[in-house]
Design a protein around this nucleic acid. Structure first.
Lengths: 229, 229
DNA sequence: GCCGACAATATTGTTGACAATATTGTTGAA
DNA sequence: TTCAACAATATTGTCAACAATATTGTCGGC
């Protein structure tokens, strides 16, 4: 148990690598909400120096993933349900814009690819391949943001997603949601194909906000009887 | 010239204070785009230790205001015009959402205050009080985000604004823009008063995007003949 | 005079030690 | 037993010295 899990050559991992390591652990729920992130532990487990670990934590704080208190160090930040609602509202607006801009700016190739991913997703649902559905879904949304010519928004949305990932993950194991997502995607694709930016925007926003509604229901089921804090 | 400009008691300024000091200088164009921020200089001028200066710079990097390269340190990041366009597009979407939500959620008091600030702005234009117009304008937009019940979006927009502040600043010295902004605000207020969320959203988005159009024209005038980097 | 190689300086990255503070454990009395 | 005061430990914040790298200045050859 002495060897670090992260080993980048001789010199130890870089600050971004450490940040990514922590981020991944938060995503995968190995670091849970509220858990304190002790510098020394991370130092040992990643093999990075304390200085770099500190830097990494600073970055994560700026991203909103952890919160740092004086003399108490960093801990995993938990988004309240209301915060998640706000973030989803923002995401809906931003991805809506991207859908509209995709309609205007995307290349023929990107249009084709979007259609293909959509088909693959339908197939994944029929087969029941949940993980590949999740991957495809992420690709689908990424593609729309990419084709819209708005890398800045894309980066923004990526950040918005991070603090709520654990919940999103659960979503992909519910068949109802999968089917409804497929239907939404078809509607969005139809609007895009019809060169209807406003329609695409509206449909996309609805899709994202429905995602939140579903999430909220799910959360009620999962954390039934949890006490706060 | 030996005394630091920033003096917080005996122990020197804190990390956030240093960050704010740098931020302010970038805003006011005393640090211009591309300029390198040498740690030692900032150390001397603020009175903070190098360690804290470093931390402050890290924070600013995460905010997107400066970029840090290995062994070359921090320099003021310049947003390209296309980036500014994307940021404004995002801002339009987000503030649009806020306008719609303000219509639904804001208190009577907030409605009244919005109206009052609007009147004050008109007055400021008539008198030609540019600075107070700028302040009021910021307050006006803040109030809408506040009354919308979306603090997360508010924080997001605040970030979006920072990297383009120098340009925005110039805007407030052009009478045409001031008048057009007043007109936009009236339209937005009207929609809000009529309890028309969709109308408010549309008007707000248009307002923000018009701001960008104006900015772009302005930029062409100002940097006429500038060579790129 | 102009250009490239080398030396000198300046600047940043990193490490380790120490100080300040919080957290935990222990003791003793009510 | 239970609680508060104190001591011990753990953890983070800060600093100063050193190493690595970039930038600038200088010299010699062409």
């Amino acid at each position: 148990m002495r060897n670090p899990e992260l080993n980048a050559g001789q010199k130890g991992p870089s600050t971004p690598e450490i940040a990514a390591w922590i981020r991944e652990r938060i995503r995968s729920r190995r670091f849970v909400s509220g858990q304190r992130l002790v510098e020394f532990d991370i130092t040992r487990k990643t093999g990075g120096s304390r200085f770099k670990v500190r830097e990494a934590l600073q970055h994560l704080e700026a991203e909103g993933l952890v919160s740092i208190e004086e003399y108490r160090g960093a801990s995993v930040r938990s988004a309240t349900m209301d915060e998640v609602r706000q973030l989803y509202r923002a995401r809906g607006a931003l991805e809506g814009i991207c859908a509209a801009d995709f309609t205007r700016n995307a290349s023929q190739k990107q249009h084709a690819k979007l259609k293909k991913i959509g088909n693959d997703m339908e197939h994944a649902v029929q087969v029941g391949a949940t993980e590949s559905f999740a991957t495809l879904n992420a690709q689908w949304h990424e593609l729309i943001m990419e084709g819209s010519g708005n890398p800045a928004i894309r980066a923004l949305v990526q950040r918005l997603n991070t603090p709520v990932h654990h919940l999103v993950f659960e979503t992909f194991y519910r068949a109802e949601r999968l089917l409804s997502a497929i239907a939404d995607h078809s509607a969005i694709l139809a609007a895009i194909s019809n060169r209807d930016p406003a329609g695409a925007e509206l449909a996309m926003r609805q899709h994202v906000e429905d995602g939140f509604t579903f999430l909220m229901k799910l959360d009620k089921d999962l954390h039934f009887g949890d006490e706060a804090e």
